[in-house]
Amino acid sequence: MIKLFTLKQQKKDGESGPDRGKRASAAQLRIQKDINELNLPKTCQVDFPDPDDLLNFKVVIAPDEEFYRGGRFVFSFKVGQGYPHDPPKVKCETMVYHPNIDLEGNVCLNILREDWKPVLTINSIVYGLQYLFLEPNPEDPLNKEAAEVLQTNRRLFEQNVAKSMRGGHIGNVYFDRCLK
């Protein structure tokens, strides 16, 4: 046991030199580690609009195979001070015709919500997102219309994806061009 108050007296002012400024938070230290160790597949790229702000950044995924090859999809990441206890908030900024991403940019990926664990990293999330483009899951959809097409008519789905990426209407929804 230590002698905490051996002096039992007033705390001395300014005894410890100048303030070092507020120290980096645990969330900040952790995200720095995550970012420094990003090890992304060549189809993914991370972009920091402000290199001093490691908590807000974009991830761009440009799949080179399957339905979405040739497309370019931008995701915004917002990491809060609750990280890594709480997952980052991830939104898709590119309008995409995808069973697991809705037209508002909400993404249905288990590790972003119900299955998030502090041991997971930004890298795990990027891999998860990439997987969504390789293996869209029509059984648990967010965009139900897209999921139904994928389930019933793969050809048509493929055509719809291609059309949406070129820029065009699917039904009455207009998709901006997002080809590389």
């Binding site: 120290r23 900040q28 970012i35 420094n36 160790e37 920091f48 290199p51 490691l54």
Partner: peptide, 26 residues
């Protein structure tokens, strides 16, 4: 491949980070 940051006035300042292309360039 060390990434180096510091804190100025409570805000992060990235000094150098080589693993991320966009940060490395900046």
């Amino acid at each position: 491949t060390p990434g180096i940051t510091t804190s100025v006035g409570g805000k992060n300042k990235t000094l150098y980070m080589q693993t991320v292309k966009s940060i490395e360039a900046k």
